[in-house]
Amino acid sequence: MPTAGYLKRLTRRLTEDLGDVDAERIAEESKATGAQRASDCARGDEVTMHGELRAVETCSRAAKAGVKAEFFDGTDVVLLKWLGRNRIAGLEPGRKLTVRGRVAVQDGHKVIFNPYYELQGTDE
């Protein structure tokens, strides 16, 4: 009975948390690119990941100058830090990108310092 399966999927989509739906979508896109999953990465690993920026923050104070971004690939969050930069054109929340670098751990969170990055086209 095909309608039962359709109704089940529709009900799931209507009652599912939007964050879960978004995470699932991002994880599928990341998997399609062949990138590594952030949840599988550990300290010291050289990685290439694909995902979205959730937040971007700049700090212009001399001691802490840099750009920080929260990167999410649908499985885990990785903090990206570009040291010595006041801003980076194109880095904004919601933007998709591919990053490459070595994973470190700082204050219990995964971090990549000065990652190579490739901005992906916008969906708009």
Results as ranks from 00 to 15, higher is better:
residue 26 I to C: 06
residue 106 Q to S: 06
residue 4 A to Y: 10
residue 113 F to C: 00
residue 86 N to I: 06
residue 4 A to W: 08
residue 37 R to H: 07
residue 10 L to Y: 11
residue 44 G to Q: 02
residue 60 S to Q: 13
residue 71 F to P: 08
residue 8 K to G: 06
residue 98 T to N: 04
residue 13 R to F: 02
residue 9 R to Q: 07
residue 102 R to D: 05
residue 21 V to I: 15
residue 97 L to R: 01
residue 113 F to H: 05
residue 111 V to P: 00
residue 117 Y to F: 15
residue 45 D to R: 06
residue 73 D to H: 03
residue 57 E to D: 06
residue 87 R to V: 11
residue 15 T to P: 02
residue 62 A to L: 14
residue 103 V to R: 14
residue 124 E to S: 10
residue 27 A to W: 00
residue 122 T to G: 15
residue 99 V to F: 04
residue 102 R to Y: 01
residue 1 M to G: 15
residue 119 L to T: 08
residue 53 L to Q: 03
residue 64 K to L: 11
residue 100 R to C: 06
residue 39 S to D: 01
residue 123 D to L: 10
residue 68 K to I: 08
residue 120 Q to A: 10
residue 114 N to W: 02
residue 18 L to V: 12
residue 81 K to G: 01
residue 65 A to L: 09
residue 3 T to F: 10
residue 55 A to F: 05
residue 52 E to Q: 05
residue 85 R to C: 05
residue 94 G to C: 06
residue 39 S to R: 14
residue 23 A to S: 14
residue 9 R to W: 01
residue 82 W to C: 03
residue 45 D to C: 08
residue 14 L to Y: 07
residue 83 L to C: 08
residue 94 G to Q: 08
residue 118 E to A: 10
residue 114 N to T: 01
residue 92 E to A: 07
residue 16 E to F: 02
residue 104 A to P: 00
residue 65 A to N: 12
residue 81 K to T: 14
residue 81 K to S: 11
residue 29 E to M: 12
residue 31 K to S: 13
residue 49 M to V: 11
residue 61 R to H: 05
residue 84 G to K: 09
residue 38 A to M: 09
residue 81 K to M: 13
residue 105 V to F: 04
residue 124 E to Y: 10
residue 105 V to E: 13
residue 103 V to G: 06
residue 87 R to K: 13
residue 101 G to F: 03
residue 3 T to Q: 09
residue 112 I to R: 01
residue 41 C to S: 15
residue 63 A to T: 13
residue 76 D to M: 12
residue 29 E to N: 08
residue 101 G to P: 03
residue 53 L to P: 04
residue 36 Q to V: 10
residue 89 A to D: 14
residue 82 W to G: 04
residue 74 G to E: 08
residue 16 E to N: 05
residue 116 Y to A: 15
residue 91 L to Y: 07
residue 113 F to D: 09
residue 28 E to N: 09
residue 2 P to G: 11
residue 116 Y to T: 12
residue 44 G to E: 05
residue 5 G to S: 11
residue 108 G to S: 09
residue 110 K to D: 00
residue 23 A to W: 04
residue 23 A to M: 09
residue 93 P to M: 11
residue 116 Y to K: 09
residue 18 L to T: 12
residue 37 R to V: 00
residue 68 K to C: 03
residue 4 A to Q: 06
residue 75 T to M: 06
residue 37 R to F: 02
residue 12 R to A: 12
residue 109 H to I: 04
residue 58 T to P: 00
residue 27 A to Y: 00
